[in-house]
């Protein structure tokens, strides 16, 4: 066997086989979360400006961003701690930082899969939204929300990272663990993973209600549509997280939001 095929020094270090890659992975997740928070700011400020005609003062923005970041990191920690025994977590990313054979190509396939599913979900959601507007007695938009496609792109990037770290890696994993404790099965059977996915997707839907208040009238119909729409795409992201890994869910979320927040406003302006 040639020397070049030997594992790199990380494998034989006295700090253990893979502690340093994991610490490095969490560092990267934290860096991505910071980038995600920063990327979301222009989009969120555009929404606030549309609704309130003023920008959020920077001290309030700073505090909100720090709280957001803390929540993301807490959820990521929970998911990375609980995920491995549940068949969840971020094994795809761990494999990549550990330089496991074919980890890069597997990650590439997961990203492509996520992008395809996410783009499809974005297109279907847009079509269903248009159909709902045509069929249902929806209220007029109170505020003509406007943001540049660039803000939409950045918002999609930030949401793809941070909302998946919160709702899939954190919340869905936590629900899966709680349910497995309840029924005393570890790893949890598929029905339990689906239940955890549904609960996380519901939470994901509720988390999108505040923006409804900013944009339009809140009534049973609009609340139901927001919960259903976000809940269904949340289910899709959860399924991808479970079956194809966290990065696939992130890619799908990014692609869905890219369609909804950047491409639709760009191609179909109000």
């Amino acid at each position: 066997m040639g020397h070049e095929s030997l594992p790199d020094a990380t494998w034989t270090s006295t700090s253990g086989p893979s502690r340093r890659p994991r610490a490095r992975l969490f560092g990267w997740i934290a860096a991505a979360a910071v980038a995600g928070v920063l990327a979301t700011l222009p989009y969120e400020q555009s929404i606030t400006l549309s609704a309130e005609s003023v920008l959020l003062p920077w001290p309030a923005l700073l505090v909100a961003s720090l709280v957001h970041l803390a929540l993301v990191l807490l959820c990521a920690s929970i998911g990375m701690r609980l995920g491995p025994t549940l068949g969840l977590g971020a094994p795809d990313l761990i494999a990549w930082v550990e330089r496991q054979p074919h980890a890069g190509s597997k990650l590439g396939r997961a990203i492509r899969r996520g992008l395809l599913w996410g783009a499809a979900a974005g297109i279907v959601t847009t079509m269903l939204g248009a159909a709902a507007e045509a069929i249902l007695p929806l209220p007029e938009e109170l505020h003509a929300a406007s943001w540049s496609p660039w803000h939409g792109l950045l918002g999609a990037f930030g949401a793809g990272i941070n909302e998946e770290l919160i709702f899939r890696l954190g919340v869905m994993t936590l629900f899966a663990r709680l349910l497995s404790l309840l029924v005393r099965r570890l790893p949890p059977p598929p029905a339990l993973i689906w239940t955890a996915n549904a609960l996380a997707a519901l939470g994901f839907g509720f988390a999108h209600l505040p923006i409804l208040e900013v944009l339009t009238e809140v009534n049973h119909l609009t609340v139901g549509l927001v919960l259903a729409g976000n809940g269904l795409v949340g289910l899709l992201f959860g399924w991808l997280y479970w079956r194809s890994g966290l990065v696939a869910a992130m890619a799908a979320h990014f692609a869905t939001d890219l369609v909804l927040k950047a491409l639709v406003p760009l191609l179909l302006p109000l």
Partner: peptide
Amino acid sequence: PGTAAMLSHIQE
């Protein structure tokens, strides 16, 4: 930790 890497290297 390291179990997944060991398995994937064996498969390789």
